[in-house]
Design a protein around this nucleic acid. Structure first.
Ligand SMILES: [Zn+2]
Ligand SMILES: [Zn+2]
Ligand SMILES: [Zn+2]
Ligand SMILES: [Zn+2]
Lengths: 131, 131
DNA sequence: GCAATTGATGTAATAACATTACATTCATAT
DNA sequence: ATATGAATGTAATGTTATTACATCAATTGC
């Protein structure tokens, strides 16, 4: 999936997210898109659902916010597990992939016959710049 | 912290959570405590804040719910990082601790001078019983 | 062409989750 | 007894997310 074949609403939402320097809530995305004709939360949530599906956007569960993928040109899903650091001071989000952690979690799930769906790894704290 | 020195509201909330077979939202805890005199969400949230602080309860960020710690007699905070599997079918939650993952995340944070606060690891999927 | 299907959109209403603000009560330490 | 800090009661509000229903657009099969 590339950014080319997005619908208008999906493209607008992705554009807002990828030009933001931090994660945004669905409602702040909505506010930024009022001038583009957005009127209701559902317009944002529907676009986000698709962007998440395409791997162009990530949802940060611990702060109820959304962030553009750090490498949307690749298929982020293909990287396997994605983990994040989230600075609680400046909002900066860093995305990373760790195969050791991934294997470890896979092993734990396999040992217990737990069928893994989506996995969340989020570290909240303070980034180097804000320390 | 043991369960002895809890206030009335904290004790009631902990009791509801520890007798539940799955995680509960703050509002469903509230509903279960109406007969005990609870009237407002804040009564639940305040008790939960303390129970989280004491390490008697965990918050599941990805489902906006709370669960009693699997080993409240020990100090769960002392175990370091806590990770969860969450069955999306039956709601069953399993808590586990993995030092390899913990060290790996610590290393990542240290390398980037990221000061770690709270870390969330949650695997949503299907448990063995529901497969 | 034209119905049928599917995916996307617009809009309103509502549900679910969480916090702010302020007054009061309780425990306990001086 | 009184000052302090912790806990509580209550109402109002703020924030996040979904349901329901109507409409529109692109695609497919005939
Ligand atoms: Zn990504
Ligand atoms: Zn920062
Ligand atoms: Zn625990
Ligand atoms: Zn299950």
């Amino acid at each position: 999936m590339t950014t080319q074949q997005l619908t208008r609403n999906q493209g607008l939402v992705f554009d807002v997210l990828s030009h933001s320097d931090g994660p945004l809530s669905a409602y702040s995305i909505l506010d930024k898109l009022r001038d583009s004709g957005f009127r209701a939360p559902l317009q944002v949530y529907r676009a986000l659902d698709k962007l998440l599906e395409f791997g162009l956007v990530h949802r940060l569960e611990s702060i109820n916010a959304f962030v553009a993928c750090a490498h949307p040109e690749e298929d982020c899903h293909a990287h396997g597990l994605t983990a994040f650091t989230i600075c609680e001071t400046c909002g900066k989000v860093t995305e990373f992939h760790d195969h050791v952690i991934e294997d470890r979690l896979k092993g734990f799930a396999r040992d217990r016959n737990f069928k893994t769906g989506k996995t969340t790894i989020e570290i909240r704290g303070t980034c180097a710049g804000c320390a």
